[in-house]
């Protein structure tokens, strides 16, 4: 019995060390969304609109006429990407979003607390991966979504229910290891008619 007692400090040390080691590997910024398995909040916001080359010489701002709402997400599995021109990481992930959009992934943009014109210029310059872009200059929808910084990417199913939230840049590793498997799973669960 006394021999066993001698090992108590060692056991405590090992348990503590294991816990602390486990804690080292955790991301202190990781915060699960409060909206997982909840529908996208209701909203009514304008489509960002595009810069269109009207007469081959000048760029003219068009759009901002169509009002979008949460029905935007019905019927298809989509990614909702929160971005802004002031967000440096968004610039980093942008080319990758263009790539995955080309493979047929539906990405909806949420232009978060940004200047409309700057955002339109950004899309004209770097390419537009978004099926549609919601313009949210005051950040109201961002607040309802629990956005606390761009970029953030939500995975939303065909019923408009949020399944996953990724905070930070979407790159090849993130897409292949976390987002794509979940995306594919939701796609496979789609009723035949909507595929």
């Amino acid at each position: 019995m006394d021999r066993v007692k001698l090992f108590i400090p060692l056991i405590i040390f090992v348990v503590l060390a294991a816990m602390l080691y486990w804690g080292l590997g955790r991301d202190p910024n990781a915060m699960p969304s409060a909206l997982i398995n909840r529908p996208v909040p209701t909203f009514q916001l304008p489509e960002l609109g595009q810069l269109k080359d009207a007469d081959d010489t000048t760029l003219v701002v068009t759009g901002q006429t169509e009002l979008l709402d949460e029905t935007l997400f019905l019927g298809q599995v989509s990614l909702l990407n929160v971005w802004a021109t002031w967000c440096i990481s968004c610039r980093v992930e942008h080319p990758y979003l263009v790539d995955i959009a080309e493979t047929g992934v539906r990405i909806i943009g949420l232009n978060y607390k940004d200047e409309v014109e700057a955002a339109q210029q950004w899309l004209a310059k770097y390419g537009d991966p978004y099926a549609q872009t919601i313009s949210d200059p005051t950040g109201g929808l961002g607040l309802d979504l629990g956005v606390f910084g761009a970029p953030e990417t939500y995975l939303i199913d065909h019923l408009g229910v949020i399944h996953y939230k990724h905070v930070g840049v979407v790159d090849d590793r993130v897409w292949r290891t976390t987002l794509q498997p979940k995306y594919q799973q939701l796609r496979n669960a789609l009723p035949e008619a909507e595929k």
């Binding site: 915060m31 699960p32 969304s33 409060a34 309802d144 979504l145 629990g146 606390f148």
Partner: peptide, 8 residues
């Protein structure tokens, strides 16, 4: 606040 940003 909790509905949007969680217990965090």
């Amino acid at each position: 606040l909790v509905a949007r940003y969680g217990e965090f």
